[in-house]
Amino acid sequence: MEVMRIEAQTITHLQDWLGKTESLEDTVTAAPIKALAATLDRPDPDPSKGSFLPELWHWLYFLPHARQSEIGPDGHPKRGGFLPPVPLPRRMWAGSRVQWLAPLSVGDEIKRVSKIQSVTHKAGRTGDLIFVVVSHEISNQNGLALVEEHDIVYRDAPGPEDKPVAPIPAPSDAKWSKTITPDDVFLFRYSALTFNGHRIHYDRKYVTEVEGYPGLIVHGPLIATLLVDLVRQSIPNCKLKRFEFRAIRPTFDINIFKVSAKPDLEKDPSGKTISIWAEDHEGWLTMQAIAVLA
């Protein structure tokens, strides 16, 4: 029997956030690009004015700046504000769909307009799930450059009798692969770069004793960035037109994991559609993605 933990009037209240918008401005500066390149162990030349901003590295900008008094016990900003105040303890970046219309470069003055596209409730076997879809449009001085849809999932903490979702084996026919050895310094540097205070990524005592996970959780957007970086390394000078990813299972810092890719020639004989995925140390699929080259 399905469990309902959120009352109907709460769901109705959350629907009030539909259509809400937020507008932010920023500048594509060189320092975060240089820092992320170092974190990913890339031998990139130092960026300068006009340098191309690699795909997905727009996540280094428009960062949340909640005051310290507005931070909750898990390190996230307290609920409310632009995002709806969902009364469920766990929040996950479940996936994104990104389309590049024009390049972004160092020195660009950029603006992001965000909108709450949908707030959906589902009652699952382990309790309630709330799905929030946020759209982002990023423009520079030349007009609209990037469009993104961002999927956020809120859920309850699992109970002692809840069974984990059955794992899915990762594909075994990769053309390109890279093994990643995560550690707490790697995760801390990415948290610092994205001003992400969520304690599951750096506070081992909190994540194991309070949240009940076996280790620090590798950020979903960091894994997505590593997937795109594998394509950039494997196909030099390529540019992406579209990218989408979906998180499948959490990845922890206590084991190595692997990112892999191959051209999806069945779907696109031109070779411009790339199937990409991440898998854990046991070969279970943790993230699934598609990139389409320009």
Rank of each mutant, 00 (worst) to 15 (best):
K78M: 12
R79N: 03
W284V: 01
I130G: 01
M1Q: 12
H198N: 10
L230E: 00
C238W: 00
R199C: 04
L104C: 10
L40N: 08
I71S: 01
T12F: 10
L104E: 03
K115G: 00
L144T: 05
G50A: 07
P236C: 06
V259A: 05
K267R: 14
I116R: 00
P263C: 10
I235W: 02
A261I: 01
I217F: 10
P182N: 12
T181V: 13
T12P: 00
L14V: 05
F243Q: 06
I71W: 01
V185E: 12
T181P: 01
D229K: 11
N140S: 04
S23C: 14
A174I: 04
D203Y: 08
L227H: 03
K49Q: 12
F131G: 01
S96F: 03
L101F: 09
S96N: 08
E7F: 05
V210D: 10
D74R: 02
P214Y: 13
P89T: 14
L293T: 03
I71R: 02
P45W: 14
S118T: 15
N196L: 05
D128H: 07
V106P: 07
S191Y: 10
P32E: 13
L193N: 07
H58D: 05
K175T: 11
L265G: 07
D44G: 08
V259W: 01
E266F: 11
F131Y: 09
R67N: 05
S135P: 01
L18M: 14
G197R: 05
S260C: 14
N196M: 06
P85T: 09
A38L: 13
S105Q: 15
N237I: 06
K20F: 02
L240V: 11
G220C: 04
T225Y: 07
L293K: 06
I180L: 09
G95T: 00
P43L: 12
S48F: 14
E2S: 14
A94K: 03
E211A: 10
K178Y: 09
G80F: 15
I110P: 03
T27Q: 06
L129E: 00
A38W: 13
K205P: 04
E137S: 11
H58W: 11
L222G: 03
I274E: 01
I11M: 12
G283R: 04
K258A: 07
D26Q: 12
H281C: 13
